[in-house]
Design a protein around this nucleic acid. Structure first.
Lengths: 221, 221
DNA sequence: GCAAAAATGATAGTAATACTATTATATTTG
DNA sequence: CAAATATAATAGTATTACTATCATTTTTGC
């Protein structure tokens, strides 16, 4: 993928103060990602992050009103980035089949570190999405947060790929279920292959997850 | 399903003192399920549970060494129960196709309360599995806990259904991935239909999730 | 170059959590 | 009925996820 170094625009509802607007903000996000990746979301605290970036807990709270909203920010950044990559990747493709295959590949393949310029390490962020993102919506506050638009970026990606399916098969009844099954499935399989391999059939060499889900969507449609 | 009221045998590594062995133990599990269902795993504490069952936090700790291990207990109880239902449901079926379809139905359909005698409300437990069970393995301790056999019951169910797939299609390469994709997918779709309906295509009337995943597995195989 | 404004840092405090430890009181059982 | 066992009560701990306040540094607009 070509590195265009495009800025991902994040809605202001996902932060108190825009972390992209200052050096401290960018350090919070950069090292926040690294720390969550390292110790996990559950053990992650703003205090620990403050110590690492030589700043203060209270300063971090000026950017994000809670640990939870920091996760929400990261998740939305990720899906905005995926949406951008998706739109770009299929823009010049004429075949609908090919568009869909590209989309599924993009949603299921491992993210390799590509963008050293950005303060966000997309490969690490992808790992976080795999193992932590469900904690963003598996809460008792889902409905309230959904109303506030906390999950729109994810939903928009699902919608776009569903539209690709419908262009190929206008009468298909379950495009959203198929897409969200593939996305969540790919995350699970990536996690399982690292930690619970009995739940997968991953062979080291090939890109099994991508192959599996492309085969799956082709069979279903 | 016929109510045989069979006891589900739970391995002793999942508790400090067997909760089935005393009235207090059974109350802990029964009201623990209700409380987690009500307020969610994150807000759930042994102190709150103690208040409800008119017992003490410290007494609950004698049965389960932590809140986390209580979840692990419930998850394993659930998968042992599913395994039992599965074995029973396919035991007298001769057709391999039918066996597999029964299995997928069992894994994807909503659990209706059927067993008023037991101290475990399976319908509530199923809801908990849908919204909380991933928190059992999405931790930094997965590998250690996997070694201790904390996820064996789940893995056994996946293995059994994978075996059904292989009997039907001995050269199929991804039986475990297909099964775990269906199981986790069905959980997600159930959760999404309640909270994030844009990620599904659920229509109120029919059992859309079951239909979708049976269609899916038939297409793939 | 300087005052005002804005950003950041330091410190303290809070209620709750997820426990552990100890002691007291019931309850069971041999 | 005494001893053993189970349960309850109480207290205590380090940590968490914050909030509030005030001090200090940095930026900015003239």
């Amino acid at each position: 993928m070509v590195n265009l170094n495009i800025q991902i625009a994040i809605d202001s509802k996902f932060y108190s103060k825009n972390p992209e607007s200052s050096d401290l903000g960018r350090r919070i996000v950069k090292h926040g990602i690294e720390l969550i990746h390292q110790i996990g979301y559950d053990a992650f605290t703003f205090k620990k992050l403050g110590a690492i970036i030589q700043s203060n807990e209270s300063s971090i709270y000026r950017y994000f009103e809670s640990k939870h909203s920091f996760l929400i920010y990261l998740v939305n950044w990720y899906w905005s980035w995926v949406e951008y990559k998706l739109v770009f990747a299929i823009s010049n493709i004429s075949s609908q089949e090919e568009k869909l295959e590209i989309a599924v590949r993009l949603l299921t393949e491992k993210v390799k570190e590509d963008n050293a310029i950005s303060f966000i390490n997309e490969a690490l962020l992808h790992q976080i999405i795999i193992s932590e993102s469900s904690k963003a919506y598996l809460t008792k506050e889902v409905d309230r947060e959904n109303e506030k638009g906390f999950y729109t970026c994810y939903k928009r990606v699902v919608q776009r790929v569903s539209d690709l399916i419908l262009e190929l098969k206008p009468d298909y009844k379950y495009p959203h279920m198929l897409v969200s099954t593939i996305i969540e499935g790919a995350h699970h399989q990536a996690y399982f292959s690292d930690h619970l391999p009995d739940l997968t059939d991953i062979s080291k060499e090939k890109n099994t997850i991508v192959v599996f889900y492309i085969e799956l969507i082709k069979s279903v449609l």
